[in-house]
Design a protein around this nucleic acid. Structure first.
Length: 214
DNA sequence: CACCAGGCAAGTA
DNA sequence: TACTTGCATGGT
């Protein structure tokens, strides 16, 4: 199984890599992007991020002072904008209260401990927490998303009803514990998912992994 | 026109 | 615990 996964990784890397993820310049931008992209196409998130950048608002102190309503208006293109504005605020409140508004301090926390704390922030679930840890913090945490589940269950690596933790454990067990690999692998999976498999279509002979194996 | 996108929380039984 | 529903814009 280890060999299968590394083969798939190499195949994907040859086809698409390196992806240079996360698409964002600062840790804060990555964190905000991780919240905004929940169940949302990245192209929509880009517009929202751009609005914040245009106002020079993508900074911890400025974003913290920005009224929630104004924030909601600016991130409208990302969809679910009222909820997401609250979620961004929830994170900023958490950061200020627990780490004096310092991301550096936050990321000094032991990764397993920090993960639990992040999951305690309303609006940050497993995928968002893990994306923050891996892509903003550089921690060796494997991110599982809808594409990961869809692709690897269709190809019978995991059960169709596997939950987040069991899928994550599958990858942890079969890959070296290396942030660089986790970073690239997840980005490659997203690229594969976007390009080759339209949602809810069944596995076919000209689909996802089978196609790039040729 | 219908359907989907790099989720999550809250409500129900 | 195991389902279901609301959240919402923009692209295909």
């Amino acid at each position: 199984m280890k060999r299968d996964l590394s083969r798939i990784y190499n195949l994907l890397y040859k086809q698409f890599g390196p992806r240079n993820w996360w698409p964002g310049d600062t840790r804060l931008e990555i964190i905000v992007g991780a919240i905004l992209t929940q169940n949302t196409a990245w192209t929509n998130v880009e517009k929202a991020i751009k609005n914040l950048k245009n106002g020079d608002l993508l900074k911890i102190d400025k974003l913290s002072r920005l009224p929630e309503k104004r924030l909601a208006g600016l991130i409208k293109p990302a969809g679910y904008y009222n909820i997401k504005a609250r979620r961004v605020k929830n994170f900023l409140d958490f950061l200020r209260k627990k780490y004096n508004g310092s991301l550096t301090r936050m990321f000094r926390t032991r990764t397993d401990v920090l993960r639990k704390k992040l999951l305690g922030v309303k609006g940050i679930g497993p995928e968002t927490a893990d994306s923050i840890l891996l892509y903003a913090g550089g921690k060796p945490v494997f991110v599982v998303d809808a594409y990961t589940k869809r692709i690897f269950s269709r190809h019978k690596f995991i059960a169709h009803d596997a939950d987040y933790t069991s899928i994550q454990n599958f990858f942890l067990k079969n890959l070296p514990r290396d942030a660089k690999i986790f970073n690239e692998f997840h980005a490659l999976i997203v690229e594969l998912g976007k390009n080759l498999c339209k949602a809810s279509k069944p596995l076919c002979d000209n689909c996802s992994l089978r196609r790039i194996k040729k």
